[in-house]
């Protein structure tokens, strides 16, 4: 009957519209929705392999990390530091040493750059100890130009950079030995220029 046909057609059209809407919804997804859960990932392939990557988690080690510190007193290839004073700032018999690196254009530039990257957040680019950290939190760092610091030997400043002092952590990991001496040079320059 005609009326029936109309109804059927209407239903079919509605169904088609609904279908298109559904298809659009599926195609578009839940764009703009936020979720705390990770996205659906149906094909894991080998995204998660049974191996330890650098800096990954490990349920085996007490530290929870796959990264393990070298066993104390072991020496890797390429890490035979013949000159102990150069890498620690302290010679066994003589105590703290002076900066063994000859100052040059490059070392000054390098020292300044490294200082800016690693030291200036706390100690500020002028060395007055009121860097960004102070501005955000009120925590003052040592003023590198004060007499107490001027009186320190180069080697002791090197040691402080390497191992930290007080609230400051050691920076031996991110800054290599040559760069640390360059930073010492830069600190000396800040001290000279602030007289």
């Amino acid at each position: 009957m005609r009326a029936r046909d109309d109804v059927v057609t209407a239903v079919m059209r509605a169904g088609a519209r609904a279908g298109v809407l559904l298809a659009l919804l599926v195609a578009v997804g839940c764009r703009g929705c936020t979720s705390r859960r990770p996205p659906i990932h149906l094909n894991p392939n080998m995204d998660d392999q049974p191996r330890y990557g650098a800096q990954g988690p490990s349920p085996f080690f007490y530290s929870g990390s796959t990264s393990q510190a070298p066993v104390p007193e072991t020496i890797a290839r390429g890490e035979l530091e013949e000159d102990e004073a150069y890498v620690t700032g302290r010679a066994p018999a003589r105590g703290y040493i002076d900066n063994p690196q000859e100052p040059s254009e490059e070392t000054l530039a390098r020292g300044e750059e490294r200082y800016r990257i690693y030291c200036s957040p706390c100690h500020a680019s002028s060395g007055d100890g009121r860097g960004t950290v102070y501005q955000r939190s009120g925590l003052e760092s040592t003023d590198l130009r004060e007499p107490r610091v001027r009186d320190l030997a180069d080697g002791e400043i090197f040691e402080v950079i390497s191992e930290g002092r007080g609230l400051m952590e050691g920076y031996a990991f991110p800054i290599n030995v040559g760069d640390r001496w360059a930073i010492v040079e830069h600190v000396r320059r800040l001290q000279r220029e602030s007289r």
């Binding site: 995204d47 990264s67 510190a69 890797a76």
Partner: peptide
Amino acid sequence: CRRPEHEIVPFVIAPESTIPGVSKRYA
């Protein structure tokens, strides 16, 4: 079905010469 979550668990105090991803050799 979800993508697994991976944590980054670095050293708290990193040993001086260990660069993550670069291997070392010991005799």
